[in-house]
Design a protein around this nucleic acid. Structure first.
Length: 438
DNA sequence: TCTGGGGTCCTAGGACCC
DNA sequence: TCTGGGGTCCTAGGACCC
């Protein structure tokens, strides 16, 4: 088994495409007030910047780094190139993410699986990755199982290769922290720590029954095996999606229910559009709500038959919100669809099922402007999203949001000559009553 | 203004059916 | 009158991964 991991992938793509960033700290991730680091280049890691760290902290540790929000199209394209390279080497390739994959070497075109053969093959593969990607390096691990290959690829990062000889697996693992085992995260590690288990060697001494008692059925059996380097998971080349979801964290907490409904509607539209694009539909709609204090709630509802309709997903999502007390403020909203079924479009030709997105509710926004707000006028404001005027009254304008991202508040920057306001355009969807000038 | 977004899998309780 | 057990589906929450 071979595991390949592209080094600091997102940051490396940025440095490849923008020569001015080469040799400099680069941080890719959320750049908003509540963003986190997705990838830090090795130059940034010197300053202690790490994945999953808040961007705020990364900025304080390394203020001179380039902070980028990411160009996923470029990452996807480069990933495709690498995966193509792997698939040319073996028909059995399992991508784990854009920057990682397992390759079944037993199915590769190799005379044998001797250490020298496999080592030469892996070195050649690494060289080809550099060539095909315009300079991106990969760390590779090879071993007798997925687990060992993955552990091995981590041992000599970046730009390294480690081949673990058969028979040496358990000796390799014994001194390691239990966290090397996939599935042992912070919570499990803490549970183990409390009973005095820190290393794989210590884990080995626990009976299977005790392990199950400690960590539950699935995790107990799983850890018992992996502690002994027993892992016969096959490479699975094609996996079917089980859910599709969209979520967003807002720079300031949401308090306006109408706005929350509008945001859920937009997310539902996005999710349903993605379902249609991939020819899927699902029966269960789930909303996710993270409150100001980070407690996370979910509510779901299952339909009798699968849907890919924006209107259905949106209505269900809004209805599910009704259940929840959001008075303390909401930092995250999300919509997901699961229970997916292949769904063959009835009319393969003829009218493409270009479904109309569910219209977004309007939101009342107080403003401090003497301007006349004509319905249909575009409202562009980075802090409050983009939309158009739906109606207006004294000191208040009703905005139908297209892309609202934060809750409405006083619209400070709306001045009479505000460049963010553009001339009238016809409202859509047309509502005769609302297009009367105010 | 600590704490992303897209996922997967597991657990546990309740409803319901046989 | 009191008490079954297995299986499936649904819901909510949590751990984990990259």
């Amino acid at each position: 088994m071979l595991h390949l991991d592209l080094d600091a992938f997102f940051a490396a793509v940025e440095q490849r495409d923008k020569p001015s960033l080469r040799g400099k700290p680069v941080v890719v991730g959320g750049v908003g007030g509540r963003g986190v680091v997705s990838t830090a280049s090795y130059e940034a890691r010197v300053y202690g910047v790490r994945s999953a760290m808040s961007t705020r902290e990364a900025r304080s540790r390394c203020p001179h780094a380039a902070f980028l929000s990411g160009r996923f199209h470029a990452y996807r394209e480069t990933s495709r190139t690498v995966m193509g390279l792997l698939r040319a080497a073996s028909p059995l390739v399992e991508p784990l993410s854009l920057d990682e994959a397992f390759v079944d070497l037993a199915r590769a075109d190799l005379p044998d699986l001797a250490l020298e053969t496999v080592t030469a093959f892996a070195e050649d593969l690494r060289a080809r990755v550099v060539e095909a990607t315009g300079g991106l390096t990969a760390s590779v691990g090879v071993g007798t199982s997925k687990f060992i290959a993955k552990v091995a690829s981590d041992l000599d990062k970046p730009d390294g290769l480690v081949v673990v000889a058969p028979g040496t697996e358990r000796d390799l693992l014994r001194p390691m922290d239990v966290r090397v085992i996939p599935g042992v995260g912070p919570a499990t590690a803490e549970r183990l720590r409390r009973v005095g288990i820190h290393t794989v060697a210590e884990l080995e001494s626990v009976s299977e029954d005790e392990m199950v008692r400690l960590l539950g059925n699935a995790n107990g059996h799983w850890l018992y095996s992996l502690a002994r380097a027993e892992d016969d998971r096959p490479v699975v080349a094609e996996r079917e999606a089980k859910s599709v979801s969209v979520e967003g964290t807002y720079d300031t907490d949401l308090t306006d229910r109408r706005l929350m409904e509008g945001l859920l509607t937009r997310q539902a539209n996005d999710v349903a559009a993605r379902l249609r694009k991939s020819g899927l539909s699902g029966r269960t709609v789930t909303i996710k709500v993270r409150l100001h204090d980070f407690t996370t709630l979910s509510r779901s509802s299952t339909l009798a038959s699968p849907t890919d309709s924006s209107a259905t997903v949106a209505r269900l999502a809004r209805a599910l919100l009704t259940d929840l007390d959001t008075s303390g403020g909401v930092r995250l909203l999300g919509v997901g669809v699961s229970g997916l079924a292949d769904w063959v479009q009835e009319d393969l030709f003829g009218e493409t099922a270009e479904e109309e997105a569910e219209p977004l509710p309007e939101v009342e926004v107080p403003h401090h402007s003497r301007r006349t707000w004509a319905p249909g006028m575009d409202v562009e404001h980075t802090e409050h999203g983009r939309g158009w005027v739906w109606g207006s009254g004294r000191g208040v304008v009703t905005v139908r949001f297209e892309t609202a991202v934060t809750p409405p508040g006083p619209v400070r920057s709306f001045k009479d000559d505000d460049p963010l306001l553009t001339p009238w355009r016809p409202p859509e969807p047309a509502d005769p009553a609302a297009s009367e000038p105010a």
